[in-house]
Nucleic acid binder design. Sequence first.
DNA 1: TACATCTTGGAGCGTTCGCTCCAGTTCTGC
DNA 2: GCAGAACTGGAGCGAACGCTCCAAGATGTA
Lengths: 189, 189
Amino acid sequence: MARYRVGLETRERILAATRRVVNEVGIDGVTLKAITDQASVGAGSFYNLFASKEDAVLEVVRQAIEAVDPDPEGEGTDTLVDLVDAFVTFFTDSRPIARIYLQLALARGLTDRWVADRVNRSHRRRVERFADAWQRHEPHIDAAEAEVRAELLVGGLMGLGLNALVDPAFDMRSHALRLLPRLPAPEPG
Amino acid sequence: MARYRVGLETRERILAATRRVVNEVGIDGVTLKAITDQASVGAGSFYNLFASKEDAVLEVVRQAIEAVDPDPEGEGTDTLVDLVDAFVTFFTDSRPIARIYLQLALARGLTDRWVADRVNRSHRRRVERFADAWQRHEPHIDAAEAEVRAELLVGGLMGLGLNALVDPAFDMRSHALRLLPRLPAPEPG
DNA sequence: TACATCTTGGAGCGTTCGCTCCAGTTCTGC
DNA sequence: GCAGAACTGGAGCGAACGCTCCAAGATGTA
């Protein structure tokens, strides 16, 4: 949509503003006015660059998830610990965004086919990566078993993440590590 | 609030209507008009019996959770399998309500102290019951260890429930059973 | 029967919010 | 420097929604 330099800059300003609003007031506070005020932009400019309010919010969520990806290039270099760590980091460092991710999945996953597909696809991809890492870690188990274990692990992580969102005092990382299979040689300390 | 017989009956009609609306259209469709139309009641009658729309919705959620409780009296007779089973049943048989429960926890758990407390308390109580059942099942482990395991189990169940909500094809029950410790004698078949 | 209290429906208030529209301005390629 | 496309701000539209108010009627009590 944006084709001129200023347009691209405004787009970035809007995304940054959206991110800030999301982090400060949560999804219910993410009104168009809040975003456009924060970005010092009119509603017209916003709609010149984004199809809808949700469009901007989803982009912010997407970027936040990508930001903690231990292997953005998909080269198969990530370990189970890396993946669990990234997952935990997403939930602890981007709590408001993680919250919105789950809310979108829950609220729109039923009615909005587009969101549902997107959520399901990203979940499948995540399970695949966990399964691959699991097989790299324990080569003797077969693919199907690795997939089931990965599904359980991701499910467990999601549940713990849910916990962490509702109860800020919950120590997600240490619980999450207990979901991992016994590790070969935990480093000392 | 209701003190006459007709009032109590109307209250039940409204709760039934709310349940029906929730199950058919999900939380976003739960407008006051939808409820009052479905119950054939005016808005004034509604507010004569409930403090707010949310009041009615929360009551419906509460009843749904209670309905699957394997040990409503709290007599300590429930086993781990019972508890897991009840949890899975809640998510598979009352999907829309389970969805709303999570949505409320996520959306209002941050801003609304009252909802947050309620959610946290019900979570703690659930973990306690799982921990107790775990100790009944494996008496040799100590209380602290049972609690951590219970926390992981409940977290895992929550995550699997999330899965089941987003992906209707997901077989929550069979995955959930794998979260249990090895059972004494799995029945054949 | 007489009276107080509770119940009822629904018009409509007040607010919120996403989004459109458009006239004026700025930008870019040539 | 010109033309045309892109960008900009903001007034305001239209719809949705939770909730209030109240006069009229129903219900319970003595």
